[in-house]
Design a protein around this nucleic acid. Sequence first.
DNA 1: ACAACAATCGGCAGTTCTGCCGACAATGGT
DNA 2: ACCATTGTCGGCAGAACTGCCGATTGTTGT
Lengths: 223, 223
Amino acid sequence: MLNVPAKPKITVAVVEDDARVRQHMANILKRAPDVACLGIFSNAEDAVREIPQLRPMVVFMDINLPDHDGVWAVQQLSPRSLQTQVVMLTVHDDTDTIFNSLAAGASGYLLKPIQSAELLSAVRTVSSGGVPMTSNIARKIIQSFGNATTASVNSNREEMACLTAREREVLECLAKGYLYKEVAELLKISYRTVHTHIEHIYEKLHVRSRTQAVAMFFDQKHS
Amino acid sequence: MLNVPAKPKITVAVVEDDARVRQHMANILKRAPDVACLGIFSNAEDAVREIPQLRPMVVFMDINLPDHDGVWAVQQLSPRSLQTQVVMLTVHDDTDTIFNSLAAGASGYLLKPIQSAELLSAVRTVSSGGVPMTSNIARKIIQSFGNATTASVNSNREEMACLTAREREVLECLAKGYLYKEVAELLKISYRTVHTHIEHIYEKLHVRSRTQAVAMFFDQKHS
DNA sequence: ACAACAATCGGCAGTTCTGCCGACAATGGT
DNA sequence: ACCATTGTCGGCAGAACTGCCGATTGTTGT
């Protein structure tokens, strides 16, 4: 991160069947000065055949592929190119899929749609030995772990705890299905203030929509 | 005063008994402009007593401490400082130690010797809700997890009787916070079809918004 | 054969939400 | 006195959602 001259670029490959997403990722990676995208594949067969020759440091692997499962592709790749780190990139956040991927040798797990900053952060994280994953994914893993023994402390409950009383009031209204303007009426504040509270709630809970926040609210309530 | 967003520094504390390592980490953290190191401790007792007052966002906790186990320290700390994330920092990579640390409430697990980039990356990762750990650690967790547990995710009550199977699928996606376009990708159908299913769901459940439908979904699920 | 339904698509207007730029007053702690 | 936090507001652009007008293809039951 400091003044290190002549830093070799991080080599990357992408396996993704959706042309739109593929193009999107290519654009993001192309703009990064410290990243070199060696190849982009739309199916698992091509990827498994070509990637060992390209030897990228990082592979982003979609799970929904037309010919094979992304997990299958990881299993094929891992033994062959030991220096490659694989980051799964998918919409599935169920525990089974996550665990199968990681057990197959994946080094990270991110949920689509992925933001450009998130993607580049993942590239650098994984190339420096880290494990990029969203907080929700990590929480699933840790929670599953904690279930067997003691109480898991780092859960939704803790994220809820950092909400202020007013923010919790707003979130409860959202959980009942009220519109912004209805929340405003109920709490005797302006539409704009509801708006601001919700912005803060999203930031603190690391979510990007009302329904994600409500889902987390219910998870916490019934856990 | 406002033109520079006055980004608050990430506050950090370190618990580490080896003086050399302690100094090394202090130097690294001191050089980071966005990090403020509030305290460095050489034993667990001091750390457990002082850290709740300092309220750092991140604590790096060694496991080999002279007076107590680092896991013990985490257990003491977690209930008291809810906003603090703990990253274990140790030479032990055996499954039991990792397991116990995470169960005690740790948010991450890194192996010594730690590089400066790695340390700073971990600070930022954990302060933004992530979970720093090396890929080897993550794999160990996954593997040992795979032994004990089998997934039991699908507990769908068959109420919501009026909804068709497809509509319930869509509703479950909504309950996880997906956007229309994400549901479309997940179910391999078009945006417009998702739209139509949701119209039917709203009509059958007598609601007028996504969040109301999701609230009803959760009510049914947990009743 | 026909009706009813389920599942899949399209367009379009209007509403709602989200993100980002700001602001100000009150409070409490250092 | 100063700073951080909280709660309260405004505007605006773009994204997402909702509602309503359609449609075709199958399946199921009568």
